[in-house]
């Protein structure tokens, strides 16, 4: 669905992405993990032409992104960015309706029946019907995140790029959001790329995981192949224990504190 080929980006003279190639296919959830400053957000921005590419190209359904118009691109690729702001005084319904902007004409003062149907569908998918009529200010962090997801779904995209959507969410809201995203991927046949800090969530939910290190793609493949002890230690520079989740059989990454390491041999040495 969306494909990056040998993408290189830089901020000034500082390279941020170096020769990154990956594919985000429809019907699959692709996770991007890596330490702070490894280029995860820049990768999301490169996939939407929000940053200029030094080298390489990004394709949507085989077509280079630069050949697709700005509005046409917004109808195909929706983004939840890390620095997106929330207009707290806005009604939930108006906020979700912002997702219809790529479809609206200037001086269009009301939603068309197609806009309304898309908003209703997004509300239904995210289970946010109860929030209609409320203002964003009156909602909790978890509720707001569901509404943000409803806004990008109202864009009716084929590709969804989510940059750390779990920030500030408790564990129950994280699970609820990831369950919903996986349902959208499976049922809606969406291509979703999600930037995550939580390695266990990436392991549990993603079909494929890209591990970034200092702007380079350190590894790209199934979670079982990427989330191994040597790779995590090499990229993050910290000791962990990698076990199998007894329910799903997926990798489960446990932290090891400095104190435990100083005590000598420990379970983290059971390499994944």
């Amino acid at each position: 669905m969306i494909r990056a080929e040998h993408v290189c980006c830089a901020y000034g003279r500082r390279p941020v992405l170096d020769d990154v190639s990956l594919q985000v296919p429809a019907g699959q959830l692709t996770g991007v993990i890596g330490p702070n400053g490894s280029g995860k957000t820049t990768l999301v921005r490169a996939l939407t032409q929000a940053v200029p590419l030094r080298r390489g190209r990004v394709y949507f359904q085989g077509q280079p992104l630069e050949a697709i118009g700005r509005r046409a691109l917004a109808r195909r690729i929706a983004v939840v960015g890390q620095d997106d702001e929330l207009p707290l005084e806005m009604d939930v319904e108006d906020f979700i309706g912002l997702g219809r902007i790529p479809y609206q004409q200037r001086m269009q003062f009301f939603l068309t029946p197609a806009d309304r149907a898309a908003v209703d569908r997004a509300v239904e998918l995210t289970g946010t019907a109860a929030f209609r009529g409320r203002r964003l200010r009156q909602m909790s962090g978890g509720e707001r995140q569901m509404v943000v997801l409803a806004r990008v779904l109202a864009q009716q995209p084929a590709v969804l790029l989510l940059d750390e959507p779990m920030v500030y969410l408790d564990i129950a809201h994280q699970v609820a959001l990831m369950d919903l995203i996986r349902r959208l991927v499976r049922q809606g046949h969406l291509a979703v790329l999600i930037v995550l800090h939580e390695l266990n969530i990436a392991a549990e939910y993603c079909d494929q995981v890209a591990l970034l290190s200092k702007g380079k793609l350190a590894c790209f493949g199934a979670p079982e192949d990427v989330l191994t002890y040597p790779r995590i230690e090499a990229v993050y520079g910290t000791a962990v224990v990698v076990q199998k989740n007894p329910f799903s059989g997926k990798p489960n990454v446990l932290l090891v504190s400095e104190e435990q390491k100083l005590r000598g041999a420990g379970p983290w040495q059971r390499k994944g």
Binding site: A50, A74, V79, D84, E85, M107
Partner: peptide
């Protein structure tokens, strides 16, 4: 103001989000 009302609505999400909604 009315001509750019749609763009101002998109700006309420921040400049990057406005760009992702197709606003120049």
């Amino acid at each position: 103001g009315l001509w750019f009302a749609r763009d101002l609505n998109a700006f309420s999400l921040g400049e990057n989000a406005a760009a992702h909604l197709g606003i120049p």
